[in-house]
Computed example of a mutant assay.
Amino acid sequence: MLFRWFSSRSSSGTFPAGDWHAACQRVALLRSLSEEEAERLGQRAWQFLERKRITLHPALENTPFDRPAQLVLAGQACLITLGWSEFEHADAFSNVHEIVVLPDGFTRDVEEMDEFGVVHAYTDTRAGETSYQGPVVVSFTDLMQSGDFNGFNVLIHEFAHKLDMGNSIDTDGFPPLPNNITPAEWHGIFSQVWNDLQRRLSQNQPTPIDDYAASHPGECFAVSCETFFSAPKRLADAYPDLYGLLCRYFNQQPLTRMHYA
Rank of each mutant, 00 (worst) to 15 (best):
K162P: 03
S131H: 12
D19M: 09
K233G: 13
R234Q: 13
I189P: 01
S8P: 08
Y243L: 07
N204D: 12
P103F: 04
D241W: 07
L102E: 10
V137Q: 00
V96N: 04
S146G: 04
V136S: 10
S224Y: 00
F116A: 06
Q70H: 01
N62H: 15
L245F: 02
K162L: 07
E88V: 11
C247Y: 05
E50D: 09
Y122M: 11
P68L: 06
E219R: 07
A127V: 09
I169Q: 14
Q47M: 05
Q203V: 00
A261P: 03
W194V: 08
E86D: 11
A77R: 11
G83I: 08
I209F: 02
G42M: 03
K162E: 06
D19R: 03
F87D: 15
F152V: 00
M258F: 10
P176E: 12
P254L: 05
G13Y: 11
T207H: 01
Q192S: 12
T171W: 13
P64D: 05
H157S: 08
S94Y: 07
M1W: 11
S32K: 03
G173Q: 08
R9K: 10
A127P: 02
L29H: 02
F190L: 10
V27W: 03
C247M: 03
I181Y: 00
S32A: 09
N180L: 15
V137H: 00
A90Y: 10
V72C: 10
I80E: 06
A184H: 11
D104C: 13
R53Y: 06
S224D: 05
V136R: 07
A160S: 11
A28C: 07
G188V: 10
S94F: 08
R31I: 12
Q133G: 11
T130N: 14
S146K: 02
Q198D: 14
Q76S: 01
Q145G: 12
S215V: 14
V223P: 02
N179V: 15
H259E: 15
T227A: 03
Y260P: 03
F140I: 03
M165R: 04
H89T: 13
L235C: 07
Q133T: 13
H216W: 12
C220M: 12
V138M: 00
V27M: 01
A22P: 09
S146H: 06
F87I: 14
E129W: 14
C78W: 13
F190E: 03
A238V: 00
P240V: 10
A222K: 08
D19G: 07
D211N: 12
F229N: 04
R53Q: 14
T55N: 08
F3Q: 14
R108M: 15
D66M: 14
S94R: 14
T227H: 01
R44C: 00
A38K: 04
S139N: 00
P208C: 06
E86T: 09
L41G: 07
S85N: 08
L143W: 00
F159I: 05
P178T: 06
F159H: 07
I80S: 08
G83F: 04
H97Q: 10
L246E: 08
R234V: 09
R126F: 05
T141F: 11
Y212T: 08
H120K: 15
F6A: 10
T171Y: 13
M1H: 12
V136Q: 11
Y212V: 07
Q25N: 13
T14I: 13
P208V: 03
D164N: 07
L73V: 01
P232R: 01
P135Y: 01
T171Q: 15
H259L: 14
Q133S: 09
L235E: 02
A213F: 04
F221K: 06
E39F: 12
I181M: 01
